[in-house]
Nucleic acid binder design. Structure first.
Lengths: 360, 360
DNA sequence: GCCATGGATGTGACCGGTCACAATGAGTCA
DNA sequence: TGACTCATTGTGACCGGTCACATCCATGGC
């Protein structure tokens, strides 16, 4: 690609093309098979031969060809992450965790975005990605598109050699996948209990749209309410998972003074709720307590700083990779699933009877 | 491929392994070369032969092997994105744009994270990635690590056939790369002018740490100030690009009442500044105007909603891919570089003399 | 009727690794 | 000393495509 006339490189001949295993063998005075053995750390190679091969590799700048290896081996040394989103904090962090683990293990990371949750689109993507020759697959199943991808996966992969991993909010039904997930139930339960402890008569819940009608977060929230005999109010359902939708939904419902605490599906929603409270002249946490999920980087700097549940998404991603058992020295026992932590900041406080007059 | 007992496919033998080009040829009654021609849309194939081949492909579920193609062709059909971060909005969106364009063009996207801006780390990553056989490379040069990667790239790539693209804040010096960047100078100039128009005597600037001591944003800011003869105050430099560092830096400097407007390096910093103003009892925009860069999704919902400059990162990413000229029908003329837009919201307003007493 | 032209098709070699198997030579044991 | 084991090394075929080149046949101009 470079047209400028540069170096003529080594004086030997024209090593224009990259050095191959046979070039190394010739220089080292051994057979190509011996070179292959050295590269792969095979045991039965004499110290003498090994050293000469390593020297030759260094002097030629030899690097094994992924393509050739993949062709011979029948599978690429790649893990493809199937996700519907790259920007949202949780997704991006999980991807970062996967990449880190994969990089350490010498495995390349590819990414394939699901452009919509249309079943046809999802199925096409899965079909494309689950060619056994194209390596392992990790599905980020945080949302509907991901859940559909997971559902489409088994049929395709059933008899193939492809290895796949599933990251999500809950354990999938099929047990032929290796999965990693957060204990959302406990997390939601704890966050709800925190609000109840502050004296709120009950806690409202704003849900993120999900494939399962009753998500794990919802379940934990209900469990906490029932544990203390608190009423279970209807779930607030914004039209989408955007901050804007949460803001709009909150503007509609926050009028009723009986809402004193809201457990939001994630921090982005919580931001919309905070803003809606501000728009309605409600003070947080004076009139309303708000709790989120995820602990996005901005959360500590919202006004008020957001109480939220922190998830170790990067740790989740690392584990999702580890369970695949591929790459350099795969761990027999992957790291444990990281547990969520409740981070209490300013947006949650003691319950106070709301003055209907405070609404302007 | 599939164990569930549907079709037994061809009665011939056991098509356990994936079908190859020669299998297709046998079924279609042509040579493997003809199959190759059909796959690649070569012209000189009779309609009859083409049809039989396509039928055979369908019935065998044939799919070409990336690995074999890469091996024969000498280069993989992959673009690797080299970046220091996956979570920050701008990075993630750019990645999304690249992925979208690449997906459309039938090119796989790989990602390689620079774990630090340590020159050794960066160089090792570049060295690894710029193997001409492993496809094209796109460097996200938004920060120091990216800039270093770019600097390391030419030396490695010089004699290789690798195609690379550079995405950044400014055009790199070397012109042997294909680059795409935002006009940060104009963007900063416009944002600064907006504040000056509101009557502010001058505008302070909080910079994001960058490789160039004088970034383009800084240049545009200065130009706008000089255009109206406003003084150029010293740049506020947080220790890092985090919201937390911006918050800390702002707490230190916002005490002086002569600061009435701050142009922040990005929205994350702006959030920290907003929060610092709140902590100091300053009203925004009453006492202080704050403007950011990027227009992250939360910006409209901050209190106050943030005035900021919107960048079309996804568009930038798409263009970065297009300039590589790879994949299906590469565009001869890539889309234009998207222009930034100033989005005026609540955090910027008319200048007012700050009452020193308002500081608590 | 002859040869140039060109579309359609096939054959062999090759890309750079890996696997299966054979061959060599030294050391061990009966 | 012969048979056997075992470490070390080498050879050939193969993975699934692509490229370069040869071949075949139909057409058309002279």
């Amino acid at each position: 690609m470079d047209v400028t006339g540069h170096n003529e490189s080594a004086a030997t001949d024209s090593p224009r093309a990259a050095a191959s295993i046979r070039d190394v063998a010739r220089v080292a005075g051994v057979s190509y098979q011996t070179v292959s053995r050295v590269i792969n750390g095979h045991s039965s190679v004499s110290a003498d031969a090994r050293e000469r091969v390593e020297t030759a590799i260094g002097s030629l700048g030899y690097r094994p060809s992924r393509a050739a290896r993949a062709l011979a081996h029948g599978m690429e040394n790649v893990v493809t992450v199937l996700t519907s989103n790259t920007s949202l904090f949780g997704y991006a962090q999980t991807l970062a965790g996967i990449e880190e683990a994969a990089r350490t293990a010498g495995v390349r990371v590819a990414i394939r975005v699901l452009s919509s949750d249309d079943p046809d689109v999802v199925e096409a993507a899965v079909e494309q990605v689950s060619d056994p020759r194209s390596g392992a697959v990790i599905v980020l199943g945080f949302d509907r598109a991901g859940a559909r991808a997971l559902a489409a996966l088994p049929a395709v992969v059933r008899a193939s050699a492809a290895v796949e991993s599933y990251v999500g909010r809950r354990a999938p039904k099929a047990d032929n996948h290796r999965w990693t997930w957060f204990d959302d139930t406990v997390a939601a339960e704890r966050a709800t209990a925190h609000l109840l402890d502050l004296g709120h008569a009950t806690v409202h819940h704003m849900a993120i749209p999900s494939s399962s009608t009753v998500g794990d977060r919802q379940r934990g929230w209900q469990r906490a309410l029932r544990a203390v005999g608190a009423p279970v109010p209807p779930v607030i359902r914004p039209e989408s998972w955007t901050t804007q939708a949460a803001h709009a939904a909150a503007l509609e419902v926050l009028g009723s003074p009986e809402i004193t605490a809201v457990l939001c599906g994630n921090d982005d929603q919580a931001l919309g709720v905070l803003r809606a409270a501000h728009d309605l002249g409600l003070s947080v946490p004076g009139d309303l307590s708000v709790v989120g999920f995820d602990d996005i980087p901005g959360a500590p700097f919202f006004t008020p700083a957001l109480t939220t549940v922190r998830f170790d998404f990067a740790g989740l991603g690392r584990r999702a990779f580890e369970v695949l058992g591929i790459g350099h020295d795969p761990k027999p026992e992957p790291s444990p699933i990281p547990q969520p932590t409740l981070i209490i900041r300013e947006s949650s406080g003691p319950a106070a009877t709301r003055r209907p007059t405070s609404k302007r």
